[in-house]
């Protein structure tokens, strides 16, 4: 039952467990990219579209493909890709 949950979560202690896969971010949620899997075939394309370590995203749609807003652009991502993007969830009020 917790398999899917564990797949999306990083190996961190419960206290600092804000790091998760992009798929786990809810609609309207904001997150900052912590890392992108180096083996991901579309990694270069993500960089070109402004999705790289440090980019702040807003999730617009969560179904597959999901839609995020990054550097002023909307980008649609298959869940297979989003699962390889590790993010830190940001509070709603943070700019």
């Amino acid at each position: 039952m917790f398999g899917i949950y564990n797949k999306y979560m990083c190996n961190q202690s419960p206290a600092e467990n804000k790091c998760l896969s992009l798929v786990g971010v809810p609609i309207g949620g904001r997150a900052q990219i912590r890392s992108i899997d180096h083996d991901l075939p579309g990694r270069g394309r993500l960089h070109g579209l402004g999705l790289f370590e440090g980019t702040v995203l807003k999730v617009i749609r969560t179904d597959d493909p999901m839609i995020v807003l990054a550097l002023g652009s909307r980008v649609a991502l298959a869940h297979r890709v989003a699962q390889c993007i590790e993010v830190d969830l940001l509070p709603q009020s943070e700019p």
Binding site: P41, G42, R45, L46, L49, P65, I67, S73, R74, V75, A76, L77, A78, R80, V81
Partner: peptide
């Protein structure tokens, strides 16, 4: 093999 997962800009 799996097809290239979708990554596309929505202008």
């Amino acid at each position: 093999g799996e097809h290239q997962a979708l990554i596309i800009e929505l202008p």
